[in-house]
Design a protein around this nucleic acid. Structure first.
Lengths: 358, 358
DNA sequence: CACTTTCGTTGGATCGATTCAAATTTGCTT
DNA sequence: AAGCAAATTTGAATCGATCCAACGAAAGTG
């Protein structure tokens, strides 16, 4: 009864119970980690001592230092932590990561931070065996920090030029091309593009020169894919409005207002994310514009929400969960080689796209 | 250039660079943790040595042992890890937890496991400062394991008798009573209850005797609240069918089939979770039963999905995110006292409840 | 009975850092 | 140039375990 953890502290270590039980710390350690090699009588004595002193088992802090492996992978992002539970894309990704972790018995540590400095510290001091880096925003900074930890890591969603960072992603050019070809095939010739970030922290219309200086290669590649197909049917891509958003409702709506505030609005919208496409769907519906009768929309990502929207969204589906699974695998089976994988995408045609009116 | 991390291992420690730079480890350590107290010339020399040897900064494993604090809280459940990203209730809760962690700079470790043995090990070896225990299923076992770690922990969603475990929850009796009173007030007199688990691993009809032996006090309390109000208007609660489910679609549908497979089905359903209520909504709609014209339903929890269902769901809303925030606070500010808090619930009346026909 | 095995136990070394009292150096005063 | 305070640096101790070579005792063998 004297063992009721008292308010202040619990300075009871393995060595303490070893002494109490009259054995060496080596034996005491064995009682917990390899009980079968210690004589039953001794084992019981040590366990009794542990019980009596309120010892909660070997402290993982100590074990960790000796063992080296944490058995957990860190998932890092520059967004607030709640991003992992809010964002549909992140959630599907995390489901894939979870699945792979469950299968191997590894834990997941969520790493993030409000400000830059805190983020650096958190990444430096995260107790993990490797990182999966979500490069939504501030990707390059994150990658830089992760690299400094000198732990295995893979970057997701970042088609970086830098061949030295391991990435798992998709063929953005091909995916975007599929979306555009679908719409041109239906007969559309007037387009607008809702783009993800080319560089951090900017939103609004994007000029062709600005595209050249894109930090996010994924964004640039998708635009390349779109334009490649539009050019093929003779669309003058320099006249196609491209609006950069922060992939949130506010900036997407601002883009939509600009896009539809002109004399001859587009008949089709190419959105670089389902999130933007879904925002567009709602915005158009509020304005009594019918999708797909008045406007066709094709999204990108293939999040579950896209299947149940009104109308269901035509989109370029990434194998999101699979990417997550592979990322975990890449880290746990890290052999020092930097893996760069591209997974196939798939065009899922639903009700948000149809031939243009007339 | 010789610093390119080679495939195999990286045995470069702080002591190595101290030697290389010709300073003691004490000084080398200071260069990283309190750079301002070491002379610039020395600081630069050490940093240069670190750079040259490919040192990725002080290993948190070592620091941890010395410092004692991990600066992360563990969230434990007996469900698979993906539960955190799938389940609406869990997601809102995690959002609250995330928010509190973001604010204090703490990290989140997700702890879970497929099998029992693995779960025990994972809890024993989780590198965290405390646990938040999700008691959905296998709650008592989880609490037992968490307690053995002798770390601060709070149990969520478990109105345990055991006064020695810290919990943050709601007044289940009062919440349930609000739901029932709402329906009796509308004139309903024929009810059925979709119940959460009374004990682990059982589903199906529940007899009054079985209710007495409930492991989950929360489930029992909600039933008590329901029955209290039903009795008040003269309903014979011993005749009210109560079906226990695993809070998933399969067992809920089984319950619904039993409930509506009788001559005089109920006019109102009391569901102990929004999840079950939402399943019921869909099931009824598929059977051309109109809610609320034919059947009224009141859920429990107040998840976001309940606001956008067809029809929107009347429900007893818990302050889910707030519970999460408080749980984090309780762990980080743990003063040895076992906190037991009850937060208020609120009845949110939407379109799934109306007076009975005729 | 001497000689191997086998089994259990011991205690020192190690994991990689931080901390702090003491020692040393530097800088200022007079 | 001695005296003293302030600024730096040192190195041993510590955090809490695990590992392993070596050792002692009990059991088995010829």
């Amino acid at each position: 009864m004297a063992s009721l953890t008292v308010g202040n502290r619990r300075p009871v270590r393995l060595a303490d119970i070893a002494k109490a039980a009259g054995v060496s710390h080596g034996t005491a350690s064995n009682v917990f980690s390899r009980p079968e090699i210690v004589r039953e009588e001794v084992r019981e004595r040590v366990k009794a001592a542990a019980e009596a002193m309120g010892y909660g088992g070997p402290d993982p802090k100590g074990r960790l230092l000796r063992a080296g492996k944490v058995n957990a992978i860190g998932v890092a992002t520059a967004e607030p932590l709640s991003y992992f539970f809010d964002d549909p894309f992140a959630r599907v990704m995390m489901a894939g990561i979870s699945q792979a972790c469950d299968a191997t018995g590894a834990g997941i540590s969520l790493v993030s931070a409000a400000n830059n400095e805190q983020l650096a510290w958190n990444i430096q001091s995260a107790l993990v065996d490797g990182f999966i880096v979500f490069c939504i925003e501030g990707g390059s900074r994150l990658v830089q920090l992760a690299r400094e930890r000198k732990l295995p890591f893979v970057a997701l969603d970042l088609a970086s030029e830098d061949g030295s960072v391991a990435t798992i992603g998709i063929d953005n050019v091909a995916g975007a091309a599929m979306a555009a070809r679908h719409l041109t095939g239906l007969g559309h010739r007037r387009f607008a593009v809702l783009a993800l970030q080319f560089v951090d922290g900017r939103t609004g219309p994007v000029s062709p020169e600005q595209v050249q200086t894109a930090v996010y290669a994924g964004t640039r590649d998708r635009l390349t894919g779109y334009f490649q197909e539009l050019s093929r049917v003779g669309v003058d891509t320099s006249k196609v409005p491209v609006y950069e958003t922060a992939n949130d409702a506010t900036s997407t709506i601002a883009a939509l207002e600009a896009i539809f505030g002109v004399a001859e609005p587009p008949t089709a919208i190419l959105a670089m994310s389902d999130r933007m496409a879904l925002v567009a769907l709602e915005w158009l519906s509020a304005r009594k514009l019918k999708v797909p009768d008045d406007i066709s929309i094709v999204g990108f990502d293939g999040v579950p929400e896209a299947a149940v929207s009104e109308p269901p969204l035509t989109t370029v589906a990434q194998p999101i969960a699979e990417i997550g699974r592979l990322a975990v695998k890449a880290i746990l089976e890290n052999d020092g080689t930097t893996n760069r994988r591209q997974l196939p995408v798939e065009l899922i045609v639903r009700a948000s796209s149809a031939p243009p009116r007339g």
